[in-house]
């Protein structure tokens, strides 16, 4: 069920990374992604992995825990790695039937795999170290400028917050409905794919109806508690930058600078 997914779930710990402002962490994830796409050298990856490794250390999220979270994407990863190995032209190392493996293909696949793993670990580190609530706050504040373009940023943030609040509620409800239908002799585990999909109807319909009912209740509750469009809204815990946050911003810019500079430096020196 939904509850078994650990990827991206908050990992409670007291660390410097946990204590950072969510806006810094969002920015850091963004910078990290850029650095992954800018870099195309082996040495660059060593630098990136070293930096990332240090951040993980500081975050106190166990590496094993993070790697376990990757389980869910193994299939997609293998699939794209294999595609990369076979479709890249170049120096042929091995060939059979219509397939051939090239040196370039292997290198590209390896780079691709590293990139994908780092990408996922990087963004999940953000969610491991940031509560959903402060993440939404961070997003709302970071994207606040969009309000001037008439994008209802606050409404979106409220929606995300409510969605997060209701994930456990609805997953519990799903469990309950499954059990109730099983008590009526339903079997959700037998038969072929078609039969199983059809068999889900007694679960999905009640779940949808319940979600609509909850949405209706919630809309009333929001109204009753004065939800409105005015700009005077205050916050119980407003986001405030600390010195550590400023330091983090500087480090991040230095990091990105290094990655970009080294790319051009290597090109200039003739490596690629």
């Amino acid at each position: 069920m939904i509850r078994n997914i650990t990827l991206g779930q908050y990992y409670p710990a007291k660390s410097r990374i946990h204590a950072l402002d969510p806006r810094v962490k969002l920015f850091a994830t963004f910078i990290f992604l850029i650095s992954l796409f800018v870099n195309d050298s082996f040495t660059g990856y060593i630098f990136i992995i070293a930096c990332f490794g240090m951040v993980i250390r500081v975050s106190r999220v166990p590496l094993g825990y993070m790697i376990r979270g990757l389980k869910g994407i193994i299939f997609i990863m293998c699939f794209s790695v294999i595609i990369n190995i076979f479709i890249t032209e170049g120096q042929v190392l091995l060939s059979f039937w219509i397939f051939k493996i090239t040196l370039e293909g292997l290198i590209r696949a390896a780079y691709f795999a590293i990139r994908l793993i780092l990408l996922i670990l990087g963004s999940s580190l953000m969610t491991y170290t940031t509560t959903p609530n402060s993440l939404t706050d961070g997003l709302e504040k970071s994207l606040g400028f969009l309000t001037y373009l008439r994008v209802p940023v606050h409404d979106f943030a409220t929606m995300i917050g409510i969605a997060l609040r209701f994930i456990p509620v609805l997953s519990e409800e799903a469990d309950r409905i499954i059990k109730a239908q099983e008590a009526r002799g339903a079997d959700f585990t037998q038969g072929n794919l078609m039969k199983r999909v059809k068999g889900m109807i007694p679960l999905i319909i009640p779940l949808l109806i319940s979600a609509f009912r909850r949405a209706e209740d919630l809309a009333l509750a929001l109204d009753a508690r004065c939800y409105n469009k005015e700009k005077w809204r205050t916050k119980l815990h407003p986001l405030k930058y600390s010195r550590a946050d400023v330091a983090a911003y500087i480090l991040l810019l230095l990091y990105l600078g290094t990655v970009i500079a080294s790319k051009y430096a290597f090109e200039y020196m003739g490596f690629v």
Binding site: N133, G161, R165, L218, A221, R233, K235, L236
Partner: peptide
């Protein structure tokens, strides 16, 4: 169906914040 936040104190703050 009337608790909107994932943290209790923030839920209580919802009305006065608005």
């Amino acid at each position: 169906n009337q608790i909107v936040s994932t943290v209790i104190e923030e839920d209580v703050a919802f009305g006065p914040e608005n």
